[in-house]
Nucleic acid binder design. Structure first.
Lengths: 333, 333
DNA sequence: TTGTATGCGTTATCAT
DNA sequence: ATGATAACGCATACAA
């Protein structure tokens, strides 16, 4: 008379089936040395019973949970979406699961999520946050993306300085004589400042004239850029022939404004953005841009988070960026 | 002499601190009735010790894990990204966590993820998959998005038929006389067929002439549409004045082709897509489009998944779509 | 209603 | 090397 087991098989079931002790089964599961002969028996029993380790029991007993939390402002933004995607791939490759938390830019929620994740015994947290006051609980592995939170928390980012410099260099190569840098607030993060600094440096190197225009955080209207541009029109001609925008999103907005004002991009004025956002389905770039190596960033973040804690953690890792020609600069082919 | 506790506080610590029994603490945590006075004492102790329930112990003992798995082909696509975002919000609102699995369109991986999730005792799975052979383990709550997998698995989708019909109606309202429907394969899913059927129906209702062009699955080159369009040019004029594309991605590609061929959108020919994809940062729509109510879909999926299992589960829920004017149809204001 | 004791599935410790 | 057993932290049945 077969007994109907309603519950999933456990290590004990496997041990009984294989004719060994539970300890042996546990060892096989965790890849610890066991005599070949026993290992085979256990493997067979596992397959026969379709056994799967209960991750909750495992998480309760052991310290590893094979789960990492990803904290991000939003999934509904091309850059974040791509980052989530590559983090997921990088984690899955290593048999880790991903717990996702979208804070929707709510700093209170962000803090709650970090606390929750820390108390949920995740093996680590990868976070991209605008919150400078974020408290990271002790003994919690944390990797920050794109933002330097604290000296002791590794940050992975694009080489923003090099990116800014590259933008200046490209505009120069493309024949620009006088350029401008446009930025929207986010003065919280030093990283975008590096884009500006790199750009300035690049302009100086090539003897390129430049101006800066920064929209403050508290304002949220690209109208200020329109006014700025208007103020630089002389005899129906713009005083610039090139603009570097701190993000692709801004670059696209600026292009709209330029079109409104009757200027042609890239004929009258060339625009370079930053991020490497593509149109639908990984089609072309929305604008000429400095491309962030998102998949490399994801790989590096995961690698650094999961590596043996005896390794020293670098405070800041800058990954190389590249220029990609889009519809907002002249063809160079 | 204070003893240094290195481990996190447990229910026992809370009980001791509050001067009650562990059972009482457990009840307070799970919102079960406890005398007001005791509840306060427990709450205070929890706050004082900064206690957080260990979700692994909880998941081991109880059947609920407050975790649901989301299975999606990719996070790196505007529609999926937005869906992930709204699912995350909907789940967080109910204090559920989200385990994300991106399959990268790999059917073998998809199956692995479903099995893994099922064995990880998640409370349910929300999946968007192109795999018709996906095996859903018994006793696993599963909600499918956009694809009808099996009669017993609830599917949440946009009202694709109504969407197709709406597209036809709009083109008619916009003055089109002869229109076309363009689709790319994915014959696997019946849902896009509904868009086609709805469109045909709409054309019939308004006496609008139409043609169909479908790119088969095995081909992956929009060149076939270009050839089709070329074949319909007479005296430098296109035989159509309106096109309905099965997705926004296709619509954008078609617009590029039309531009290549020297036609102006929307002056010469108007194009409507499907999905409601916006440009960066929730700016304008990439094309005139039938908008899928993504946040409603997410809400409904979560609601249905988490609701008491005594409720009957509807096999198919169709949510209303809307038309949004974008840059590829004439202004109607 | 409150308190106590037991077990969930796993891992680790200890004798064998 | 292998096998028995004690925790991990929580929920719950049962006794008071």
């Amino acid at each position: 008379m077969p007994t109907h087991k309603k519950t999933a098989p456990t290590v004990r079931d496997v041990a009984r089936e294989a004719g060994v002790a539970v300890g042996t089964v546990s060892k096989v599961i965790n890849g610890k040395p066991v005599r070949e002969e026993y290992e085979q028996k256990v493997m067979n029993a596992i397959k026969k019973l379709n056994y799967h380790v209960n991750s909750y029991a495992q998480g309760l007993k052991a310290s590893r949970t094979y789960t990492i939390a990803v904290l991000i402002p939003s999934a509904n933004h091309p850059f974040f979406a791509k980052l989530i995607h590559h983090l997921n791939i990088a984690l899955a490759k290593r048999n880790y699961r991903m717990l996702l938390y979208c804070s929707d830019y709510d700093q209170k929620l962000e803090q709650e999520f970090v606390d929750m994740a820390a108390h949920n015994k995740v093996d680590g947290i990868i976070g991209l946050t605008y919150n400078p006051d974020l408290v990271i609980p002790e003994h919690t592995s944390f990797i920050s993306i794109d933002r330097i939170l604290r000296p002791d928390i590794p940050c992975i980012s694009s080489d923003n300085f090099a990116g800014g410099q590259l933008a200046a260099e490209k505009l120069w190569e493309l024949g620009c004589k006088k350029v401008a840098f446009f930025r929207v607030g986010s003065s919280l993060t030093g990283e975008t400042n590096k884009r500006k600094a790199g750009f300035e440096n690049g302009c100086l190197i090539h003897g390129l004239q430049y101006e800066m225009k920064i929209m403050e955080d508290d304002i949220n209207d690209t109208g200020v850029f329109k006014e700025f541009l208007k103020a630089h029109i002389k005899n129906h001609k713009l005083d610039f022939d090139g603009i570097f925008c701190v993000t692709d999103a801004l670059a696209v907005s600026i292009c709209d404004i330029l079109k409104d004002l009757g200027f042609k991009v890239p004929e009258d004025i060339q625009v370079i953005g930053f991020d490497g956002i593509r149109r639908l389905n990984d089609a072309g770039y929305v604008c000429s841009t400095i491309v962030q190596p998102i998949s490399d960033i994801a790989e590096m973040a995961v690698e650094l988070l999961l590596q043996d804690s005896s390794h020293i953690k670098p405070p800041l890792v800058c990954l190389p960026v590249t220029f990609a020609e889009g519809p907002t600069t002249k063809k160079t082919s």
